[in-house]
Amino acid sequence: MSLSTLLMSLDGDSSGALATAGGASAQRAQRAAMERFLAEVEKRAYQHALLGLRHREDALDAVQDAMLQLCLRYADRPSAEWRPLFFRILVNKVQDQRRRRTVRGRWLAWWTPGNAEDDGAPLDLLDTTPDTRQEPLRQLVGEDALRSVAKAVEALPPRQQQAFLLRNVEGLDIAETALAMGCSDGSVKTHYFRALQALRAAVGEEAP
């Protein structure tokens, strides 16, 4: 076989001349599986990021970055590991964004003349929203119920919010939640328990 014939046989999509057909089909199957996974998880991931960041564009950026990193770094992992890995990346993105905001908030507070008389406490944008836990709703019906729960979740401290969303909404078990949050199983249980308590208080439900 001449060199030109060999090169032609290796060119373009016919690179499968040496690659096995089974490998190509497995790759297509993996891509399809990844697409199904991302399509299934993206809306809740966006909700998670939006509740954590309270900013639409930042939430979209965080979700897109998490998707990219999952595809670039962890696509070869078994698909059963994708969910905790994806949320681990997303949780980190949300935390990074929060930290950047906090730092930016400190600089803004320092530079803004009106804040010169403040008590010197660092500006935490997460504390600027009203705490819905002080307004328990006794009767939850329809959209009102949904709004009150969403607001109550939004008002949770970050770690409790993450534990609640990952455990309850996303359905991860304790070990997967611990992996996603980068903490121990015990911490997950504690955060989740406290989140439930806070939410019950917020929506006015008595603990069973």
Binding site: L10, S15, G16, A17, L18, A19, G23, A24, Q27, R31, M34, E35, L38, A39, E42, L60, V63, Q64, M67, L68, L70, C71, L72, A75
Partner: peptide, 19 residues
């Protein structure tokens, strides 16, 4: 965003497979 992320799968795979 999903399509952008999935597109990132392609070049890496092709490099790994090409002879």
């Amino acid at each position: 965003a999903r399509q952008t992320a999935l597109a990132e799968l392609q070049p890496r795979r092709r490099w790994g497979r090409t002879p």
